[in-house]
Design a protein around this nucleic acid. Structure first.
Lengths: 244, 244
DNA sequence: ATAGATTCGATCTATGGTTATCGATATAAA
DNA sequence: TTTATATCGATAACCATAGATCGAATCTAT
């Protein structure tokens, strides 16, 4: 799950097509649609309707339609959308057709996992180098990326115009790393360390907060086992919701 | 970010204290409060008010108060809450005072990272064994946990009454693994593989969906760089929101 | 060519979550 | 002891998101 630290006010979120602000939940569903459409394409299906998408993704058709409208795609009555077009629309909407070069800090297991995830390139994410402060890791190559000393980050980020930083260090190091990134002019941080980052308001922070997920998960498990009383319309199974 | 697959209807989510259903966002904020309160405790602070929490966490006090009420804690006017009590209240509310034993499948980098994360035990999560289908990994020990063959999972889960499964395999394997887990009577799945899992409705699924996060992140970055026009109350920085 | 079925796009309504308000209560200061 | 202030808990207003409805458009089948 994600907690974005510098919230202040959830303000209007506008998008290019000028269709007004897009709700965060809609934005979150985009990748789901994208993934699903890629599957359709693999199966040789070239047209799809909102009803179909909704049925397969457990969403009500109207919601799908609304979400897709944000991408600027237009569909035809009775036929629906052209799958290929729709994929492109989503990719362009999300900026996945442009490359985002990124620096990753923290060449541990998690960092290594991300470095090895070639599929990111399909979504415009290109991790170009890794950094660490552990001398034993510096100079190594991980999945074809050099591990450089952390103190080179700011300068390199600036010279290479890197806008995105990924933090996969332990919690203690996270703030220091974030500060370095900001010093290097990095605009957005994808943070996997379980720490609240203090950043200037112009910096975008997305934190993957495992504990938050774990919290919902264990709460729901606890519910199931310690609250045998379940007496209403919804089945005991209905304890789920999206965005857990 | 998290997408929970078997949604159907986001139905009422009830909790023990009987204060009515708890909103998912509130649930997600719980771990944040918990983390913050632990910090306070480390600093020797023993009382705290909602205003204080809100100021430090960028939340409006009234929201904090409401969230905390779900845990059943009661505070005193003018003083606020006793930190130690509050921590206990949250832990008990989330079920973090009970142990959840879990099996993890997929002893790759990500799996290894999770297996090595001792801090999980503080939150009631105890990963008791790892599984894999790669013969070269079977029989190894990772961070003190044995890596067993996948086909032993269902039987062991049943005999040991394991309720929680963690999937850290590649996407292709995820569904097979989930099926095995369900065969073993597992109730909840924490899925890190980028795949939609098909599960019976009684099984809780929490998927950490990296692509969804990446989608928001790259959208926001794209917004920043490709839409120089930003003409309203909110600053261009205000593009953030929680739950990205 | 026409009738029927299906789906899109737009508008409207309902739900759920967030934020504001108000009285009550506890502490601190006068 | 009294008064002022801060905070809690509850209720109510508000806003964002989700869902329902309806007309218009397009395709298929007769």
């Amino acid at each position: 799950m994600v907690i974005d630290i510098n919230l202040s006010n959830p303000e209007a979120i506008h998008h290019p097509a000028g269709q007004g602000p897009i709700p965060q939940p809609s934005l979150n569903r985009m990748s789901q649609y994208h993934h699903y459409l890629m599957e359709l394409q693999d199966q040789g299906i070239d047209r799809v309707s909102c009803s179909r998408i909704g049925a397969d993704l457990n969403l009500v058709p109207v919601q799908v339609r609304k979400d897709l409208q944000y991408t600027g795609i237009i569909g035809k009555p009775k036929t629906g959308y052209v799958v290929a077009e729709l994929i492109l629309a989503i990719e362009s909407f999300l900026g996945w057709n442009n490359v985002n070069e990124a620096f990753l800090v923290g060449a541990g297991n998690l960092g290594t996992a991300l470095l090895g995830h070639e599929r990111f390139t399909k979504f415009g994410l290109q991790i170009v180098a890794a950094f660490d402060s552990d001398p034993s890791k510096i100079g190594q190559w991980v999945h074809g990326k050099a591990v450089l000393p952390l103190d080179k980050l700011a300068d390199l980020a600036q010279r290479m115009s890197i806008h995105l930083g990924i933090i996969t260090t332990p919690a203690e190091a996270a703030q220091t790393v974030a500060d370095e990134m900001i010093r290097g002019g990095i605009q957005a941080i994808w943070n996997f360390a379980p720490a609240r980052l203090k950043v200037p308001t112009h910096v975008i922070v997305h934190s993957e907060d495992l504990y938050s997920s774990l919290a919902s998960l264990s709460w729901k498990l606890a519910q199931r086992f310690h609250v045998p009383i379940q007496q209403e319309g919804g089945t005991p199974d209905g304890v789920d919701a999206n965005c857990g």
